[in-house]
Amino acid sequence: ILGGVDALETKWPWQASVHYAGFHICGGSIIDEYWILSAAHCFDRNKNIKAFDMYVGLVDLKIAGNHTQWFEVNRVIIHPTYGLYHSIGGDIALVQLKTRIVFSDSVLPICIAPPDLTLSNLSCWATGWGSISRQGETSNKLQEVRLPLVPWQLCRLLYGQTDILPDMLCAGNVRDMKTACEGDSGGPLVCEFDRTWVQIGIVSWGQGCAYPMYPTVFTRVSFFSKWIHHHIENTPLPLQPLPALSSTLGAIINVLMTSLAVLSVL
């Protein structure tokens, strides 16, 4: 995040960090006890799914707090239009965790923007652990920045008609150099509606981080909300590992089961 400030611990409780091979590479957001929403380009095909870890309840990347939780990834669902109509179009991924998230004041889900959400005059914020300068400096502290939405037609004028698709939206303070940057991808753009926070965007791409005329381009979450719902409601939960029975306990259960079977026959 360029032009941001350090975030307090419970302010963005839906923020997640996507780690690959032990390093933060992208952001994400909690949308369910088993699901993290992120960007498809964070999960390129040549990456090994087993090398991904998800962290929630984190503010400082180097310090696990009382509410920090770590998860392995069970599956990643990439939108079928990713890269189809635009090199980074359809940039959305659903990450199913192997075990469920325990919610607390520091770990909570964000609401998903409904398909017909109207965006205007909103106060919206982006968060992330990405670069904090155009030279690529990073911060371990989660950064937050308030970003004005840039009208879609204006964004098309800035980037070109073919670069900004209907599944994208733009935000950024081009005058004060406030924007998202590398390492923020996958993180949420959230807005407050009557004390309820709703995610409207996923950090996706941009013309560098600090070109004054180019705002950040986000995946438009409302465009994909039905797809998100469909997968969360229809994807089976991960298989939970069974507790290992000791040989003695296993033997006792076997005896009990056999006794019950005999009794039922009698």
């Binding site: 409780p13 609401c111 998903i112």
Partner: peptide, 27 residues
């Protein structure tokens, strides 16, 4: 103005926790 949808249309996938409701501390 922002058009807020009725509360019933808001999506909370988790059974026990409402989405988008961060803990607010009194000053």
């Amino acid at each position: 103005t922002a058009h807020r949808h009725p509360a019933s249309e808001e999506v909370a996938f988790s059974r026990d926790v409402a989405c988008g409701q961060r803990h607010v501390q009194g000053k």
